[in-house]
Design a protein around this nucleic acid. Structure first.
Lengths: 259, 259
DNA sequence: ATTAAATATCCGCAATACGGAAAACCAATA
DNA sequence: TATTGGTTTTCCGTATTGCGGATATTTAAT
């Protein structure tokens, strides 16, 4: 919403400037809900107007940005196409196993990957229950307060973990959330021992989640089942963990063999 | 899949070359199912290898492309995020027409899209009546028991329909709900003939709904009006259908025609 | 071990995209 | 309708940026 949201445009060494800027603009439009006017974009991204205009024109021609009748700019249909393809490519291996998990356990199942220092939910199969988790695909979350996030962190070394949580920060949405690096490291050690992660109401009160990383995945990847604490209890875990484990193993095999 | 699919890279006048090329690469990766190796991309897109490599590096740094351990390139999680945001923003094209529908017909109007194998309501304009539908935006529903869902299914081929309903399941919330694939296929055929879908108390007793798909939409998209059976009857339909049809046509034009 | 084919890195050249300046454009005021 | 202030858009000379031939390096195959 405000100018502080968009952290300028990352200028990595060896990167093509125009492309980086173009995606910076996309991010900017994405953040400003709905449409963004040219000058509004110029305020967020510190670039001269003609430059922005030219880049946007290109993006419009490509169909990834749409120019509304009121001259505002909005994300376009081309992105929907690419995004869906990207999502299905990432989650295509997991999807059938998620379905099994849901029909077997009756709770929602998710796949997530790591993007930068955040968790991104890549696919989800929702349970049939009235009260269910609804994690939108594409949604980003912190690593330290989600089951999938912690499961993936457990596969990294201490150095990387430290780097990730310091850059992303460690907010504590509930009283159960992990708030310090040392506590997180201890938790990760426990996860490595038992082989799966538990999100014990750390992201949202009343929600418990069991998660497991996909071993030897090409990109960091983890699956999880989550639901209300009343249903997702110890006896649930006894049933769920073996299922999660075999699903993760199967997915791992599929990913390497299929390509 | 083959080299003929990607029609090189469009070089529009006044467009930023690198950006156009970058999206050409994305398209190329999207077409080659799963992963694409550098040289394979170079074959499709007629560009020198160093150029492609540099552009891909940039895209990897941006998180829209990820590089697999086998050095292949695949669409990345960043695209999932953008694509989803773009999808939700798409609904805003429909907004003004939804308003017209509501003021003209006096019943709530919705836009929905397809996410995975489920319907997602993207936007809604509620009627002023005391008793009205209240479909929350972002809510997910099954395809086979909603008007918008059936309208979108009618635009897919039998194979896809079968796949979707088997993965998502076919619960029957009311006695009117469609419970078998054969019944669904027959219903879809009727929808194709008459050009619109009816939800006859299939999701909730006492609720009837008329829905229509947006033709040639970039992503599956459908609009609907719904209300209690007492008000939403045959004479209502006689007024509603033409309005729905013209609204759908208008939205279709708007989405593509803005440039 | 040797070869072949891929991918990654250099680096000088010039084509490319940049952005200041100014013109069209639109939307409020008077 | 004329005037103004704030947009958006077009121009165009410049030098920064990205280009791609040539080369080094890594990986796979024999």
């Amino acid at each position: 919403m405000s100018s502080k949201d968009t952290p300028a445009i990352r200028q990595t060494k060896g990167g093509v400037q125009s492309v980086e800027r173009a995606f910076g603009l996309l991010e900017c439009i994405a953040n400003s809900s709905g449409s963004a006017t040219l000058s509004h974009i110029a305020a967020d991204v510190s670039l001269p107007l003609p430059t922005i205009h030219r880049l946007l024109n290109t993006l419009v021609n490509l169909g990834v940005v749409r120019q509304l009748p009121d001259r505002g700019y909005a994300l376009g249909p081309g992105l929907v196409r690419l995004g869906n393809l990207a999502g299905s490519q990432l989650g295509q291996f997991a999807r059938p196993y998620l379905r099994d998990l849901v029909s077997e356990l009756g709770e929602s199942a998710n796949v997530a990957t790591m993007d930068g220092d955040m968790v991104v939910y890549v696919d989800q199969v929702a349970s049939q229950r009235q009260m269910r988790m609804f994690t939108e695909v594409g949604r980003r979350a912190h690593m330290h307060d989600t089951g999938v996030g912690k499961a993936m962190l457990a596969g990294l070394d201490a150095e990387q973990v430290r780097h990730i949580v310091t850059t992303a920060g460690m907010p504590t949405p509930t009283e159960f959330s992990i708030g310090s690096i040392s506590a997180l490291e201890a938790e990760l050690e426990r996860i490595r021992e038992r082989g799966y992660a538990i999100d014990e109401q750390e992201q949202e009160l009343g929600v418990r989640c069991f998660a497991m990383a996909i071993p030897d995945a090409p990109a960091p990847l983890a699956i999880s089942v989550s639901g209300p604490v009343s249903r997702v209890d110890q006896t649930f875990a006894d049933r769920a963990i073996p299922l999660l484990r075999s699903a993760a193993a199967q997915i791992s095999v599929d990913m390497r063999g299929g390509a």
